[in-house]
Design a protein around this nucleic acid. Structure first.
Lengths: 344, 344
DNA sequence: TAAGCCTTCGAAACCGCTTTCAGATTGTCA
DNA sequence: TGACAATCTGAAAGCGGTTTCGAAGGCTTA
């Protein structure tokens, strides 16, 4: 605390004016190489770091990007967040996280929190933006904030909101799974988990119906059962499936947690996976690789996913042109939870 | 962007001086109720929020607390972080997270990152501070930063560093487990997972030996196998155990992930849990409740754990007296992964 | 050698808020 | 009614940077 070095001190010691020091610091004005060297020596001597608050005040920006997500405990979000943060820091931005604890209401507090911080950009990962018909008040809030600060919405949309959307290519992801399963010989396929009011769920269901139709396979609507996104949901959804008179030979889970729930429930019912039932997950969370059996899943490339998000928001912040909608591709990762259907 | 309301605008419209407005905003000086009401009306009219950068600059603080942790993907850390953040916001502080991606080296970058942000406080969760003998350079770095900003270290220590430590009560946690297992009839108990150079591991091993000794039970040192903290480690460690001529009837895992790995590996070897082997985990992460069988584990009360951490750092920031070391208690949560040893 | 241009530098204003310090107002008590 | 204290208010000086604007100096060119 003894030292409180400012650019004035630097300037005095280097025998130049503060503006020269500032020019060197920001690098946006030419300065004589000799003076520059001289000043830089002093800078180094004191290990000088410009005061962030002062700089922010002067620049009218914070170089912080706000992130609102529903649950940092969910490996999908935490993995993605980690990648985003890594890349953001490399680009000299900071990520300020707000974890909404699975409460859509709490997101309002998050919005207030982040705008109090005057973030330069805002990223929505799931939550409200994933609701198919969000309450008007929520939409209004997001519309207001996105009018002021560059906003991007991941895997969701908000009508009448000025935001770039970054979406994973459900279409292709589902198609890959269906093609894989049918290649194994499956024709009776279910899609389990998710919620009817969530965009991602609807998109995947839609893609599923389309791909099945394309292959001239029927879809049994009673095999599309929604119940949420958790491991518990997965358990319940398999229970429900087992009540039906007929069962599929393969099921696609809306995400890996649901798939893990299905695995757990199947174990309890002595259903051998993949022998009696093939299961594929979605998101390829790190848990997929450690379950028994290891889960075949549709993977995001988290690294490039995260980078794309950050790249996009940074470009928007800098006023560069950015496409209003970006697609992230997904890839099937084959492990041990599927095999050809056994003839019974 | 049209509106750029400052306290000058507010002052003008309310026909008072800026200092009066400021006094109302900060609340640290008396102001006439009538004027106050008048000003507050204007404040509300414009939905005025004081500029954070300006306020920080003037106050010489950021009201941000930095958090360095090794892996936000690990449910222990993400759960704890979520609680911390929730409480911090309630106390008008913000948490700035740095995820070190399991790299001790990267933590240096994190330190630089957070001090660039001029955080008012710093929290270390795991990582370097958990190393029994950290490289001198690391220690030096932390010593320097902790000399400048209030620091707290969770579940670890750093010699010669001015920081408050908040630790979970391993002693009691282990004792509860051992007592529970012995009450079930176990006498042959192992402790699996963790790393020899990590404080928490050593503490738990120490506590384990003590409690066993207290109960006049011997500990078989070959049943203390370390291999890391991941699910994979759990698998490996059980494999190793199975190579031994004699096996325990119960094992304590260093954390839940290792326990899950043990479960997975046991399944492969057709070892029935808990029938042939009792397993207990540590940390009581949400995955513990959804494994098969559901895992008996030693639980932190994450809520009060997180609150205590934040409370402590805030008190230190405010200059209040704070004990230099705080203990958090743990509690055994009994589920389905243990039973009395079967006579063979 | 003088005129003109380009490069580099410094003084000063500004970003928006907090706080000190002194002055104005009101109230209290003798 | 006057003196004094207690409250409340306003002007102005920071906080630590960035940036504009004008001036000084060096160089080229006629």
């Amino acid at each position: 605390m003894s030292e409180k070095v400012t650019i004035y001190d630097i300037a005095r010691e280097a025998e130049v004016s503060v503006s020269t020091v500032s020019r060197i610091l920001t690098g946006n004005a030419p300065v004589n190489p000799e003076t520059k060297q001289k000043v830089e020596a002093v800078l180094k001597k004191y290990d000088f770091r410009p005061n962030r608050a002062a700089r922010n005040l002067s620049n009218q920006r914070s170089t912080m990007i706000g992130v609102i997500l529903p649950d940092i405990t969910n490996p999908f979000f935490s993995t993605l967040f980690a990648e985003m943060q890594h890349y953001a820091i490399a680009k000299d931005y900071s990520l300020l996280l707000f974890n909404a604890m699975n409460s859509l209401e709490l997101e309002s507090e998050g919005l207030a929190y982040l705008s109090r911080h005057q973030v330069d950009g805002l990223i929505f990962l799931g939550g409200r933006v994933n609701e198919i018909t969000p309450p008007a008040a929520y939409q209004q809030e997001i519309a207001e904030v996105s009018a002021k600060v560059p906003t991007i919405i991941v895997n969701g949309t908000m009508p009448d909101v000025d935001a770039v959307t970054v979406c994973t290519d459900e279409q292709s992801g589902i198609a890959q799974v269906v093609d894989y399963l049918t290649a194994l010989g499956h024709t009776r396929i279910g899609l389990l988990g998710g919620s009817d009011h969530i965009t991602v769920t609807r998109n995947r269901q839609h893609a599923f119906r389309e791909e099945m139709a394309r292959l001239d396979l029927g879809v049994n609507e009673s095999w599309l059962i929604t119940d949420g996104f958790s491991i518990e949901s997965g358990e319940k959804v398999l229970e429900a499936l087992l009540q039906l008179p007929e069962q599929p030979t393969a099921v696609i889970a809306i995400n890996d947690l649901v798939a893990l729930g299905i695995l757990k429930s199947a174990r309890r019912h002595h259903i051998d996976i993949p022998n009696q039932l093939s299961v594929v997950g979605f998101d390829d969370v790190y848990l997929a690789a450690v379950s028994t059996p290891e889960l075949t899943s549709v993977s995001h490339n988290y690294e490039s996913f995260g980078h794309t998000i950050v790249e996009t928001i940074v470009n928007r912040i800098k006023g560069k042109d950015v496409p209003t909608s970006i697609m992230i591709d997904m890839q099937l990762v084959i492990r041990d939870s599927c095999q050809s259907p056994t003839v019974r």
